[in-house]
Every structure is written in C-alpha cells, then in structure tokens.
Design a protein around this nucleic acid. Structure first.
Lengths: 227, 227
DNA sequence: ATTAATATATTTGTATACAACTTAAGATTA
DNA sequence: TAATCTTAAGTTGTATACAAATATATTAAT
C-alpha cells in the first residue's frame, strides 16, 4: 500500500475534470450561446457513458449556464443583458464584504502569481485568439483574488456569480477593444499587488469594486447603444 | 388539446417534489445529522428508480446538506458551528442589500399570509411537535419575506444560505425555549407587517437584520456554553 | 404552392444490470 | 487474547437498453 491515499475519489476527479472543461468552454465562448451539447458526443469525447456526463450537465443547468430541454437537447443559455446587470449589481455589493468578512493577507506565492498574470496581460496581443486569451486571464485573476476571501460561504457565492457573468467579456468585447482592456487589467493587477504587498486591504476592496463598477457602466452603455 | 400547456415538464415536477421533500426532512430534522439515506429505500418510497433519486441527492450534496460517500452511503451532514456562524455573518450582510437592490413593495396578499403565519405562532404550543412546528413556520416566514427581494440573484443566494442554516433552530433549541422563541417570532412578524403596510422598507431590512443578529448571538453563546 | 397531418428520426429521462468501492464480521495466526 | 488478514454483504458509480418527448421530413389535401 505505497499509494497516496487521495482524499478525492476517482469518480469525483473525473466529474471535476469534465465539469471544469465544459464550464470553461461555455465561459470562454468555445461553445457559443445556443449551442446544443449532445450527451452522446460528449460521452464519446470523454470516454465515459452518458451517466456521468448528465451529472455535469445538471450542475451546469443549476448554475444557469445550460438549459436542458427534454427530447430536444441541452443548450448553452443566451447572455441576457438584464440578468447580467442584476448579477453585476449584486457582485459589486458583495465585493464590499471582502473587506469586512475575514479578509486574508496575501501570501508571497499569490503575489508572485499575480505578477505572472500581470506580465501575461502584455502578451495578449501576440496570442492567436486575443479576446479568448483576455477572458482566460480574467478568470485566473478573479480566482487569485478570491484566495483573499476568508469567509468560505462568501467565496462560494462570489465564484458562482462570477461564472454567471464571465461570458460578457468575450461576448461583448470587440476585437479592437481587447488591447485597451488588457492594459486596464494590467494596471489593475499592478495597483492591487502594490496595495496587497502593503497589507492595505480596504483599498484593495475599493479597487476591485471600481473595476466591477466600470464594467457595469460599460455594460449599461452597450445596452443603450444596442450592441 | 384541451390540456393546459404546462411550462414545467413532468420530470421537473417529480424532481421538485422529491427534492423539496428530502430537503424539508433534513432541515426539520426528520432526518437527523448522520442519518444514512439509502437510494434503494428512497426509490421504493417515491415509486421511482434510483436514477431520479440520485439527481436529487447530488443537488443536496452541492448545497451542503448531504455527504455522498461512495460504497458507504449518503449521509446527512453534521451541523457545524463554525460554518453556521460564518454563513450567518454573510446572511446578516446580505439582508442589508435587501434595502438597496430592487426592493419590492408588499402586496396585500403577502400581508395577509404574514398575518396568518403570525397567528400560527400563537398555536405552536398546541402542536404535538412544537419545536418542529416552530422550525416549519420559520421557513415559511423566511420565504414570505424573500418575496420582497426584487433582485433575483440575491434572492437565490439568500435562499440557498438560509437552508444551510435553517437546521440550527430545531437542532439547538431546547423544548422549553420554543414558547419564548415563538413569542419573539410573533412580535417580529407583527412589527414587520406594520412597517411593510406603511412601505417603510429600510426599517424592515433593519428589523430582519436585528433578528439575524440576535440569532447569531445566541449561536455564539451556545457555543461558548458548550451546548 | 401552401398547409396540415402523419410518420420517422433524434434526443433526453428512466429503469436496471453490473462494476468498483467500503464496511464489518469472521477466520487465522502469533 | 490481540492483531491481522480474508471474505462476504451492502452501497454507490457506470454502462446500457428502453420509454417518453421533441423535432424534422414526408405526404396528402386544399
């Protein structure tokens, strides 16, 4: 018995693997809204039967990323602007709580990883798919920031809401805007790292809140201009 | 085709039926923490196969009410005091947002139903299981108040967190305290109805926040006194 | 040609047999 | 007696055949 006793069962690992793969594809718009996900095809791709696939699809439905229609198919949900704004509003308020509820200090490791992400922002333009790459980095930056949330419940809620709005970037962003957004993200990470290194937590919360607020404004603008 | 075209499929209805039944049993402590839920037994009780049962159990696991251990069984989770306090802290902050994010005015129908619940508080003592009855009313009161939340995302989050803490009442409350708690709940509903009837929303949010704060304090006390 | 009805094909939901894993009791050995 | 290994029973996870619902293509009637 020289094996390492993994606390996570093989079945759970397989679930997480498929789940995160599909969620990522939806969030990064590899599957565009309206796309039909065939259980049989997915089962073939992941070399499993329909049963574990269906478990994943059900979870994605609960999280609002998928609509399961019996006899018809499993469809990636559309990006609804009113819903997006609503969730954004809530997320902005929740960020405030990061300062209040059990904030954690940033580890050296986290700061390092943020700097890696920061540098990656400068290379977005060189990527074959800049928009997708930007969205990908946006996810990683978010998840890094979430490590600072000590209240586990708040963390789970924020993550769930994040994935519900994460599609807006690749969905609404025009290719020519990506470079500009990349610069903004770079600047934000830079500022965040500076504040976190000095344990200036309240300011960090404020910073992230501004980030969301600006995004929300742009969302609203795009709505009125009818994008 | 005289049938009413139901927007909810039969399968979805069956799911909701089983899901709500099991959740209720866990939350009202009909299933005490640690209880093993046999898929086969449940399948027999609800006259379905294991497949739809397993879908429900998976959902309950995501919501933190069930722990699924392969080869061993599905166990109702223990009530963890640190987790309870953490979730409570978050709920207290979220209540604040009710005033901010799209509050809805109370309908006459809602006020009537609250008054019915209010009166029901006076008859808790006559119930064969007062503690269980109190917990049941507590759920209904909460769900009524949630109708005032216009932001759908906030509502979903609050409901999910509520069910994660709802067990504390039947779990921690001693039988002799039920009468006292019933009185408090009665008074709170009374006050809430008064405020809502006058469209005094901010005060209502404050009221509910006090309710949670007191509950949280009592939780902390029970912890220190080692109940 | 258009429309409605019908039949066929496709897809998700359910039931069920079997595989993989866990637990606990019993046998075995020191 | 105590500890350890083995075995068997019981449970959840997976694969698969079939049922139910939906969408599509075909056909017939107007």
């Amino acid at each position: 018995m020289t094996e390492i006793m993994s606390t996570i069962s093989e079945a759970e690992q397989r679930f997480q693997w498929i789940y995160q793969a599909l969620r990522s594809r939806i969030v990064l718009l590899d599957y565009e809204p309206g796309t039909r996900l065939s259980e049989e095809q997915l089962a073939e791709e992941f070399k499993v039967s329909r049963t574990p696939i269906r478990r994943v699809l059900n979870r994605l439905e609960v999280e609002g990323l998928l609509e399961i229609r019996r006899g018809a198919g499993n469809f990636v949900t559309e990006v609804s602007m009113p819903e997006l704004l609503e969730v954004f509003e809530l997320r902005m308020e929740l960020v405030r709580l990061m300062d209040v509820l059990a904030p954690k200090a940033a580890t050296q490791d986290l700061l390092k990883r943020l700097q890696v992400l920061q540098n990656a922002c400068l290379e977005i333009a060189d990527d074959p798919k800049p928009k997708r790459r930007f969205a990908e980095l946006n996810v990683e930056v978010f998840l890094s920031f979430m490590e600072l949330v000590g209240n586990q419940a708040l963390r789970e809620v924020q993550e769930q809401l994040f994935y519900r709005t994460a599609r807006m970037w690749p969905y609404l962003l025009a290719e020519e805007q990506v470079a500009h957004e990349a610069k903004l993200l770079h600047a934000e990470i830079s500022e965040a790292v500076r504040l976190l290194a000095n344990n200036h937590y309240p300011s960090f919360g404020h910073l992230y809140r501004c980030h969301l607020a600006m995004a929300s404004q742009r969302l609203a603008m795009m709505q009125t201009t009818g994008v």
